[in-house]
Design a protein around this nucleic acid. Structure first.
Lengths: 344, 344
DNA sequence: TCCGCCATTTGGAACGATCCAAAAAGGGTG
DNA sequence: CACCCTTTTTGGATCGTTCCAAATGGCGGA
């Protein structure tokens, strides 16, 4: 166990060529003679040589990894996203450095600092809620290609800079859901869940408000209800919807977790979601299709988003000087039973 | 953009000390005088120095990363597992190299080879279905600490060696579920889903069979039904349960995905799961709590398992010569409505 | 004043690869 | 056989850090 690692020098000694020649063979250069190549390759196999990419990267001043830092890995949306990122990076010969922040900006700073020490070629960051753009800039510096996914950190200082940005079309998505409910005759529609200081929540609220106004319905501030973006907290706050008569007859929810929580809460109050009250979500997590009732929601194909993010960061690594790109990806409204409730 | 990276030498030049001294300060050695330390630290901040761990690792012949290779990141069970692993590794100052294999042994070989080139301190592997122990040994070599999670690769050659192993108590878990159904009066109980060549499936089947036999019920080979471990395939194969009269009245499912698919299929045949037919799952994925009806299943707390795996691999990195450990973690039966159906 | 001792500081060789310019080995030609 | 040209091969410096043995400086005591 645990003998020394086999190096280029060992191979060179073993087959009587120089380190330089062995290195050429390793990299598949056409220079070495066929005979030489064969001998070297035999020796590589014989000794069980494993390439040391770290050493090579050091000399070549490049990097073969990309960091992926996400706010919440246990959320299936981000897990799928991560899978997509890893797919594409792997295919391009990069390895993924994974870091989870658990929605804590402090922890995010630490994780990012640690990533930086590993010298990634670029970084894909889905910021923790409450991230500060200035703090991020401090750890990440000005040199590294960065793609911000899904939400914008507070303090726009960063946005004046060269970071790419990729997010869902939250505004249009929420608008679609709202119009869908309006089309079913609803007029008293709440926006339920999420934290108003998260950029994605603000955008969704905006899409909701605009859709209402476009239909000539006045948005009711009391019906914009904040919750943590989890099933549990959503279920707990359902009371806020029914404080005052007349109560809403439908709700656009911040995301699927919140919508599922809301439906649970409704059932507990004796209301049948989808018949007595219409609900929509956002994300189309796998559960949405099998909940009771199945949840109308907005699909964004997180795995494809992951691939997209990876492709973009790779492109940016190749050409660091291009202007930053802001990508807003469309979302699809998936209509299921949870929004069937109709107002005559 | 993209100026040269700041190095130790730059700092040394900038504050008039030698590289060696700056390095001592960086590593918090007590040797440098307080005054010196202060000056160096000021210069570090001034130039925005970022430590290059790769270079340090090269010199020190050690590694600060651990590879995590999983068969299916988009499965919430493994996503949680990964989050747990990353938690613990991060806290210990290691970075996680993530790799997904999508259940393909060929891809797994490639991913592992790539990981090896990045010289991880150890590797946590949840093998793809159909992995071959010999192949694994070939890429991983004999030097690297390895923890195999969740299932055993075929060909036991590897097991004679020094790899750690951590898995759920599949046998006991399936036994618990089976006994639970027996206690509700069921006698015609199927084992539904999974591939018989996966070790976890074999173990669960064994627990099921033993529980039946302990209750004096003869297991019926036709009632062990194979499916891919997905909702979709499970739903598609439901017919196999009802080929012959009398049909089973309950099923122990390979995992939650399969159980959810089965319930879907039952509903489609006009049977109400939980009332006309009892179902249990395995894993306790989040959906299990909110499905219709909520699913009786076995919980294994994947995040805690992730932490456990990480701790074990770190321990093994510290002391490579200890004997391999086989850890079997207990699972808890979570009783919900899907298994309420009773036989008088 | 000189010496020895302690606390600091330092030059230069590693680590395992790549790069570059230059050397060595073949192979025709005249 | 000397010459030139092409094909192969190679030594040594380099990437950014750490390690080590040895150098430096200051200070108290003889």
């Amino acid at each position: 166990m645990s003998a020394r690692r086999v190096t280029l020098t060992d191979i060179a000694r073993g087959c009587g060529f120089s380190r330089a020649t062995v290195s050429l063979v390793l990299r598949g250069s056409p220079l070495p003679a066929a005979k030489t190549r064969a001998k070297v390759e035999a020796e590589l196999k014989r000794q069980g040589y494993v390439y040391n990419r770290a050493a090579a990267n050091l000399r070549q001043r490049r990097s073969s990894s990309v960091a992926l830092v996400v706010n919440d890995l246990s959320n299936p949306f981000f897990a799928e996203f991560a899978a997509g990122v890893d797919d594409t990076l792997g295919a391009a010969g990069y390895v993924t450095l994974l870091g989870g922040t658990g929605e804590s900006p402090e922890r995010q700073q630490r994780v990012l600092a640690s990533m930086m020490e590993h010298d990634p070629a670029g970084i894909i960051l889905s910021p923790a809620e409450g991230s500060d753009g200035g703090d991020l800039r401090d750890v990440l510096g000005h040199r590294l290609p960065v793609l911000v996914f899904n939400r914008e950190p507070a303090h726009a200082r960063w946005s004046a800079s060269h970071w790419d940005y990729l997010a869902l079309d939250n505004r249009r998505g929420a608008g679609l859901a709202t119009r869908h409910l309006l089309d079913h005759g609803h007029r008293r529609i709440a926006f339920f869940g999420g934290h108003a200081d998260s950029s994605s929540c603000r955008e969704r609220r905006r899409g909701y408000t605009e859709a209402l106004e476009a239909a000539g319905v006045r948005p009711e501030p009391e019906w914009m209800i904040e919750t943590a973006p989890t099933r549990l907290d959503a279920a707990a706050r359902i009371g806020a919807l029914f404080m005052r008569e007349p109560a809403p007859t439908a709700a656009v929810c911040y995301n699927d977790a919140v919508a599922l929580g809301l439906m649970l809460g409704l059932a507990a109050r004796g209301l049948k979601p989808g018949r007595d009250f219409a609900v929509t979500g956002f994300d189309d997590i796998p559960e949405a299709a099998v909940s009771t009732p199945p949840l109308t929601t907005l699909a964004a194909d997180p795995r494809a988003r992951g691939r997209q993010a990876a492709e973009r960061i790779l492109e940016r690594v190749r050409r660091p000087d291009l202007d930053a790109v802001r990508g807003i990806v469309p979302v699809r409204l998936i209509i299921r039973a949870s929004s069937e409730a109709t107002i005559a």
